[in-house]
Design a protein around this nucleic acid. Structure first.
Length: 464
RNA sequence: UCCUCCUUAGCUCAGUCGGUUAGAGCACAUGACUGUUAAUCAUGGGGUCCUUGGUUCGAGCCCAAGAGGGGGAGCCA
């Protein structure tokens, strides 16, 4: 007999009355001298199938190894449940223990685990309801990202993970080298001689696929990347990882407004997809962690984002007499977390897209506005998350871009190929980066980014 | 990296003013119960009070340093 997964058993009414085989892990066993109830989960859904084992066929001794965490295979008839709480259950004929789990040492119990504790057993936490829900939703969001772009004629581009440019200035990088760390080759001036390294130059893990993404957009028109990103920042927060996944669309001929439209459509699509396809998992997360989760997701889907210029936002914050800010608000400085939170959670009470930031606090490649002071940047701010998207219209003028490169001390020789895009058939274009785990935070209602990725990487932590 | 809080049973936590034998719930074991729903009830076993050093007649509790963790901030996605 072939295996039927729990999700199908719970929904396929045509299987009632038939013999079925289910394989999965025991969540709980309870009962009395006459009957045992075993809740089995195989990961196909957050819900368990109840296996009923009558003592006539299964004396207590025979079920001794059927403990929380054990892996079992059960054959029996799928029947309508006599008890309340489930519609169907399996009347067991045969229970085989595929893998035992010693009750004294198996760390997961029926209840009461903190997320902090589960982080220490990342190899077992996918077996919990919470992480099962999160990981199923992570898959659903991955799929939805590809579907959104594919349906709109975007092409997925694989940008390199090892890069030779550190020009983007997006943060500290992880060095990639095969040189002997104890005794590396040296130049005549005593510095490490990277010309003898594997790539013949100093290389690092990528901090962004954007520059290469622009190369592809200048040929394929509209592209997106979806890959791992690495930042060696010593960030210890619930919103940062050293290894995370980023989605970066880049579109030829798009201007700032098109960019905002795309970002807003994209986010609303992803949230709708979650609401439509992850109902059981979302309901669990809503009940267990965040009673406002479903309301918040529905709100984001059904309301336009507020679009405000940086200059107007500064005015709003300066006029916010009631709010006491730890840091002063001044035109020309970057907004602090408290300022962003005020705008999103107090003033507008909805997602906000901030645009036209001062050029001095943004990256060199952003398009200069006619005022000469601001650039066509855009940050999408979400409640509880802060910045979920950062993007801009790109500077397409070779002269203006070179001016910015020199002003900001960018290493020209490392990005010559990027600069040449403006020499040969330049075009207006725009794009943005979405932090995938930040999206996951929003859509699951989880509070810590380390709990929305299976194996988090952060300072002093690369176990598992 | 900075600020702040925390670290006591397998897990979650209480522990009064520094005082003699460190507690609870859950988990686990044993028993009871004819359909349970994070089953329930009874009984029982279970401790490097994070580590090191100090103060004290006496430290889970006070002091110092270190380690680990949470929350906030910076950096950003």
């Amino acid at each position: 007999m072939s295996r039927t997964n729990v999700k199908k058993l719970l929904t396929a009414t045509d299987l009632v009355g038939q013999d079925v085989l289910v394989k999965g892990w025991v969540r709980t066993k309870r009962g009395n001298k006459f009957v045992s109830f075993i809740a089995v989960n195989d990961g196909s859904t957050i819900n368990n199938i109840q296996v009923v084992a009558d003592a006539e066929k299964f004396p207590e001794e025979s079920l001794k190894e059927v403990t929380t965490g054990a892996c079992i295979a059960v054959t029996g008839k799928l029947v309508e449940s006599q008890g309340k709480g489930q519609t169907v259950e399996i009347q067991a004929e045969k229970v085989e223990v595929l893998g035992t789990a010693d009750v004294e040492t198996y760390p997961l119990q029926k209840k009461g685990h903190s997320l902090e504790f589960l982080r220490e057993i990342a190899h077992l936490r996918p077996r919990t309801n919470t992480f099962g829900a999160v990981l199923r939703m992570r898959h659903a969001m991955t799929f939805a990202v590809h579907k959104f772009f594919n349906d709109r004629g975007f092409f997925n581009v694989h940008t390199p993970i090892i890069t030779g440019s550190d020009a983007e200035g997006a943060g500290q990088m992880f060095r990639v080298t095969t040189l002997d760390p104890i005794n590396p080759p040296k130049t005549e001036t005593g510095e490490v001689d990277y010309s003898q390294d594997f790539f013949g130059k100093n290389t690092n893990l990528t901090v962004s696929g954007q520059l290469e993404g622009e190369v592809a957009a200048m040929a394929l028109g509209q592209i997106y990347t979806f890959g791992p990103t690495f930042r060696a920042e010593n960030s210890n927060t619930s919103r940062h990882l050293a290894e995370f996944w980023m989605i970066e669309p880049e579109v030829a001929f798009n201007e700032l407004t098109d960019n905002m439209d795309l970002a807003e459509d994209f986010l609303q699509y992803l949230v709708s997809y979650a609401l439509e396809n992850c109902a059981d998992d979302l309901q669990f997360l809503n009940d267990m962690y965040d009673k406002e989760l479903l309301n918040r997701l529905n709100f984001v889907v059904n309301n336009k984002f507020e679009r405000v210029t940086y200059t107007d936002a500064v005015e709003i914050l300066k006029n916010a007499k009631k709010a006491k800010f730890e840091y002063p608000v001044e035109w020309g400085t970057d907004l602090q977390s408290e300022h962003e939170r005020y705008l999103v959670e107090k003033h507008f009470n909805k997602p906000v897209i901030l645009i036209n930031y001062p050029k001095d606090i943004k990256a060199f490649y952003m398009k200069l506005n006619d005022d000469g002071k601001t650039v066509r940047a855009m940050d999408v701010l979400f409640p509880g998350i802060g910045e979920i998207i950062g993007g801009s219209e790109r500077e397409e003028s070779y002269e203006k871009l070179m001016t910015r490169v020199r002003e900001m001390g960018i290493h020209e020789e490392q990005v010559w190929w990027y600069l040449e895009l403006r020499k040969f058939g330049t075009a207006p274009h725009a794009g943005f980066g979405l932090g995938f785990e930040r999206l996951m935070l929003f859509v699951t209602g989880m509070g810590n980014i380390r709990d929305v990725i299976p194996f988090p990487r952060f300072p002093k932590s690369a176990e598992f």
